[in-house]
Structure formats: structure tokens, C-alpha cells
Design a protein around this nucleic acid. Structure first.
Length: 276
DNA sequence: AATGGGGCCTGAGAGC
DNA sequence: TGCTCTCAGGCCCCAT
């Protein structure tokens, strides 16, 4: 579920609370969450490390420590939470708990177990296999019309599939792909081969505008099991969705009913009048 | 070679 | 009430 705005919200909260802390203990429950390396190596690598900074590339969280980086990907249902005081009751689907030197704990919960954690040292192949395959971050100020044009290249695919491709631009998921297409006035099934300079210009503006507004609203939370931040609080951007999750309801700009269908295997929403 | 579809998992909600 | 079915925000892998 979490896309760039949600991961960025968590990143900011982690940066404000974790930097300077030392990991005193690492507990892993169930091997699937730490699947790129042995649990032994994960625990040995992370235990005793001090957190220096918290960065993000696309949907990956990069918690920089002295001697390596804790890499976190929340995938669909992963959630990080910070807890004070004594351990409470058992929280279902807890796959990892990091104890900190100030008595707090960082918990990783993930019902669908798609999310993952690993600890990488500098130059680690694990980094090349994951973060290293990403395109530029979608919130990177350098993604203008020219950069988009270069990324599109000779690709012949739908605009939606292009926006979702993390090797092209990193950080956009299904919700924001739909919102960006709407903001740019472009149909999500529009072929990238037909995009002109003016389309790319509107697309570049839309990417930046939608993501920056979403970060400002601390991301999107849908339903009960949806995204929550480090302290359990939901985001607010769902109230500003123009198309996502609004199939059959009126377009906020022209009132035409929003279309919903499947594209690139994903639910897709758009206004048939405003997007061409 | 790039692209679309299936698979990985569990839970929520709809429909009967 | 309770069962079954569909769907879900991501990404890897495979066949085409």
C-alpha cells in the first residue's frame, strides 16, 4: 500500500526519533520477512549499530547506521511502529522488533508478509539487486520534461505502466499513478509513444504537484487495515483524491462519472472527459 | 528485449 | 449468522 508519500512520512518520523539511537537487540519472528539473507546475519549485522541518518529512494527506506544500512520495504501491508515503555500484548503479524538504547522499540508488522528487511554493508550486492535497480526518485526535483522524455525513450506501453515501473521513476504506485494521470489531463491507457513535448511538460508538473500535496497531507490511508504512520496515525490525502477509489462518482472538475477498469493488471480510475 | 499475467499471502467486505 | 467469492496500495518471475 505505501507509496512515496507514505514512505516519506514514515522516513521523516524515523529521522526525528531514531538518529543517534543504538539498536540493542533484534528479534525476528518468521523467516519470510528477512529473506534475502540469513536471520543470523541480519541480527549480527544490525545489533549494536548506531543510527546515523534515515533516507529514502522510491519506496525503500534506508536507515543508515555506522557500518551498514538497514533497508526496509513495506510492500502492500507492512507497517513500522515506534513504542514506548514495557511491551504490551501480542500484536499479530509482528515479524521483527528492534529494541533501542532509550527503551523504545521499533516494530515491523505485516499481515501479507510481502514486505522485507535486510541489513547491507557498503557495496553489498543486496543493494545493487534492489535500490540499485531503481530509476530516479519521483520526488527528485530533476525530473523535468526532458528527463521524462529520455526515460520514455522508445518504449511503447501505457502511461500507467510507465509510471508504475520503478526502474523508470521510483516511488509511484497505483493510487498516485491514477492521480498523476488526472492532474496531467492524460488517459492512463495513453500510449507513451504518442506523448508530445506539451504532454511531457504537464506530466512532469503533475508528478511533482501530486506527490508534494500528498506528502503535505501525510499520505493516503484507506480502510481499517490501511496505512498508518510510525505512531499509528492515518494520513489525510484520501480526502483529496480526484479519481482513485471514486469509480462512478462525479469528476471534481467537470462532474462526469469517473471510469473504473483494469489496466496493467491494476484497478484504474480516470475521467473520460478531462483526460485525453 | 520488453511486456503482460500469474503468483506470493492474509483480511475485509460484498453477496447469497 | 455464516459461508464463499472477489479484491487489495507491490514486486518478482516466467512465458511469449
Amino acid at each position: 500500500m505505501p507509496e512515496l508519500p507514505e514512505v516519506e512520512t514514515v522516513r521523516r518520523e524515523l529521522a526525528a526519533t531514531l538518529v543517534g539511537r543504538t539498536v540493542t537487540e533484534v528479534a525476528v519472528h518468521g523467516p519470510r520477512t528477512v529473506r534475502r539473507q540469513s536471520v543470523r546475519r541480519f541480527r549480527a549485522g544490525l545489533t549494536g549499530r548506531r543510527v546515523l541518518d534515515v533516507r529514502r529512494h522510491g519506496k525503500y527506506l534506508l536507515i543508515g547506521c555506522d557500518g551498514g544500512t538497514l533497508v526496509v520495504h513495506l510492500r502492500m501491508t507492512g507497517r513500522l511502529s515506534l513504542e514506548d515503555g514495557a511491551p504490551g500484548g501480542v500484536i499479530p503479524h509482528t515479524h521483527a522488533v528492534l529494541s533501542l538504547d532509550d527503551g523504545r522499540r521499533l516494530r515491523f508488522v505485516d499481515p501479507r508478509t510481502f514486505g522485507e528487511l535486510f541489513f547491507a554493508t557498503e557495496g553489498d550486492q543486496l543493494l545493487a539487486d534492489t535500490v540499485g535497480r531503481l530509476g530516479p526518485d519521483a520526488a527528485d526535483g530533476g525530473i523535468g520534461p526532458e528527463a521524462l522524455g529520455r526515460l520514455v525513450g522508445r518504449r511503447r506501453t501505457s502511461l500507467k505502466a510507465f509510471l508504475l515501473d520503478q526502474a523508470m521513476i521510483a516511488g509511484i504506485g497505483n493510487i498516485y499513478a491514477d492521480e498523476i494521470c488526472f492532474a496531467a489531463g492524460l488517459r492512463p491507457d495513453r500510449s507513451t509513444a504518442t506523448l508530445g513535448a506539451d504532454d511531457l511538460a504537464r506530466l512532469a508538473v503533475a508528478v511533482r504537484a501530486v506527490l508534494s500535496r500528498a506528502v503535505g497531507s501525510r499520505g493516503t490511508s484507506l480502510g481499517d487495515g490501511g496505512y498508518r504512520d510510525l505512531f499509528g496515525d492515518p494520513g489525510g490525502f484520501q480526502a483529496e483524491h480526484a479519481v482513485y477509489g471514486r469509480g462512478g462518482r462525479p469528476c471534481p472538475r467537470c462532474g462526469t462519472a469517473i471510469e473504473k477498469s483494469r489496466l496493467a493488471g491494476r484497478s484504474t480510475h480516470w475521467c473520460p472527459r478531462c483526460q485525453g
